[in-house]
Every structure is written in C-alpha cells, then in structure tokens.
C-alpha cells in the first residue's frame, strides 16, 4: 500500500498551556491533533506524578499532531513562544501516513 511522508510533532506541556498551544497550532494550519494525559515523569524540574495533583495547574498533557513537512517550520515558529518558558518537551519525528490529503 502506498504511504506518504509526514512529520509527527509531539509536545509535552503543562496542562494550563494546552489551549494556548492548540490555538497556536490551529493558527499554523494544523487541521487535527490529539491530547493525551501524562501520568507522571521526571526532568529538570524534578519528579512529579499525576496522582495527588489538586489542580489542573500542576498536570501535564501531550499534544500530538501529524502534519505535512512544508507546514513544520510555521508550526514550530508559532508554537515556540507558547512553550519557550515552560516545563515540557517538543519532539519532531518522521512518520508515514496513508491519506496525505488529510494533513
């Protein structure tokens, strides 16, 4: 079956920044994304766990989108100001999709 090259962008970010990030993604022409809860982890800011968080302010989410390669620069340019000062990780990887017109 024919596949098409695309880019997968996964951003782990504080839950309070989620809507700001997805707004920036939509502004960059991203037509679809998924938001996943993050259970816990450890990094420069120390270990943390979703268990025992009293407010949304302390949680993390992962926002994942798959886009055409030519949209990547615009997306990263618009998303960077949102994630720049916040705890999280931005990762870009190559992937292949079946229906290129959707991305």
């Amino acid at each position: 079956m024919e596949t098409h090259k695309a880019k997968r962008v996964a951003v782990i970010i504080e839950a309070v920044m989620q809507s700001r990030l997805t707004d920036a993604m939509e502004d960059a022409g991203v037509t679809g994304y998924s938001v996943l809860p993050v259970l816990g982890g450890s990094g420069r800011s120390g270990a943390w766990s979703r268990e025992g968080q009293v407010g949304r302010g302390q949680g993390m989410v992962q926002v994942v989108c798959i886009i055409a390669a030519d949209k990547l620069d615009d997306l990263l340019t618009k998303a960077f100001p949102v994630v720049e000062k916040h705890i999280g990780v931005v990762a870009v990887s190559d992937c292949e999709v079946l229906r290129a017109e959707r991305f």
Partner: peptide
Amino acid sequence: IAVPAAMR
C-alpha cells in the same frame, strides 16, 4: 488550586 495555575 487557582493561583498555582495562574502562576504557571
């Protein structure tokens, strides 16, 4: 609850 979220 409210302030930690705002501070983040």
